[in-house]
Design a protein around this nucleic acid. Structure first.
Lengths: 239, 239
DNA sequence: GCACTTTTTTGAACCAGATTCAATATCCGA
DNA sequence: TCGGATATTGAATCTGGTTCAAAAAAGTGC
């Protein structure tokens, strides 16, 4: 009679409520001050009910990260299937990634925290696994672009596999963005516009890997134009 | 009468004891399980005494990171003044950085944790400042190499300042190394030898930035040879 | 060496906040 | 409607960081 299913849906909805409320609390008062009892109360449930969904606070955080990661993966895959050359698509991934992080300011911070030994190791294996699963689609998307570039002769793989090749642009994006997190670090070095710089350097690695057609790094206008086009065609595209 | 100074030295020594014991405890039982009371007891002092040195647990962690960072900065500066061309010296920084992290396996993890909003914001301003100070020397070293490369005509700065240029290689190193931290992440992608890959990609960015003389990325032997030479002449050099 | 003040050390008490679990309420099939 | 299964509750428990009044040690003037 479907009463089981309804129950399922209710539980699902409640989990959603917990997650979105947690997100709001974090936005309003910071990751630092999130408290399980307060979260439960804010949702009009008892503490114990919250623990029926999440085995621990760390679990909740991983779940939060997983949820956002899913959205992120969607955007990412959209960028990967953009109608453009492999090189531009690869670059688009970095732009989309960065735009996503700007749109969800807490996400990068949360992810940084979640991947910390202290949090990661105290989350339940299931939740960890779920987050890792969300990483697969984006990874496959990137690898696909690299493979196609090799097949099309726009990129020479040398001794490296596609996975290994993608580590360059990916690592660079991740590295610069994580520096952007640490309050005051880049400003302290006199760096003004990290976003533009990130794009510049990603183009530099792609050039360095010999990914055709090479990009003229001195042409600031072309870079801005390309970024604008990606934002228009990929990020703000209807879907 | 110098009794004040002696006292100073004793306090200094005790702080050193706390730090090195903390390091041992973390090594033996993990960051996760470090407890202030246990640490104090392990040093034969009362909890309160420990708090005379460190305002909080977070403070202690930042102090720990700062101490190691100082050693790291030394190695780093040594590499920066290596007798070699600017390009090789820049590359050497990345090699030294990575070697240091391999030699002190917990350091990267600790740093990752410390730079987390949750920890960073609950450490005292003094301790934060102290860690930031330790970043200045390395930053100056890198910037110096970049500036010299520009002066020598081995690198064309375009529209970027030396600080901005160095963000490329630096961000890449940081990004790949932090991925290496997250247990199983790289292995899950089928990546075997992240160290070699890191070196490869750093050379790729340097090539991409047009840093002369360009490095032949297909020549694996040359890469290994250069790394070996750096390890010999910079890392294991007497000082 | 002694009486007194100041500084340092101590560790048990305190407190915050995550987690548990016995009691209670709700649901569901018969 | 009844009886057992399941879900919810929130006060009690537990862990571990932090504090602070008391005790000890060090310093000072005589």
């Amino acid at each position: 009679m479907g009463t089981r299913e309804r129950k399922q849906r209710e539980v699902q909805a409640r989990e959603e409520l917990f997650l979105s409320t947690a997100r709001r609390l974090i936005r309003e008062e910071g990751l630092l001050t999130l408290q399980m009892a307060r979260l439960a109360r804010a949702c009009d449930y008892a503490t114990g009910t919250l623990y029926q969904h999440f085995a621990s606070k760390e679990d909740l955080l991983v779940a939060l990260a997983t949820q956002r990661m899913r959205e992120h993966a969607e955007q990412f895959c959209r960028a990967a299937s953009w109608q453009a050359g492999t090189r531009d698509r690869m670059f688009a991934l970095s732009v989309v990634d960065h735009a996503f992080n700007r749109q969800h300011p807490g996400f990068a911070r949360l992810l940084q925290y979640v991947f910390t030994e202290v949090v990661w190791e105290s989350a339940s294996p299931d939740r960890r696994q779920a987050l890792q699963v969300e990483l697969e689609a984006p990874a496959a998307a990137v690898t696909g672009i690299v493979s196609q570039a090799i097949a099309d002769g726009e990129l020479v793989s040398g001794r490296l596999t596609p996975q290994e090749l993608m580590l360059g642009p990916w690592g660079l994006s991740a590295g610069i963005q994580s520096m952007q997190q640490t309050r005051g670090m880049l400003a302290g070095l006199g760096i003004e516009d990290p976003t533009r710089l990130l794009h510049h350097h990603v183009q530099a690695v792609l050039n360095g890997l010999g990914w055709q057609p090479l990009f003229d790094l001195d042409d600031g206008t072309a870079l801005d134009g390309l970024v604008a086009r990606i934002e228009r065609e990929v990020i703000h595209a209807e879907s």
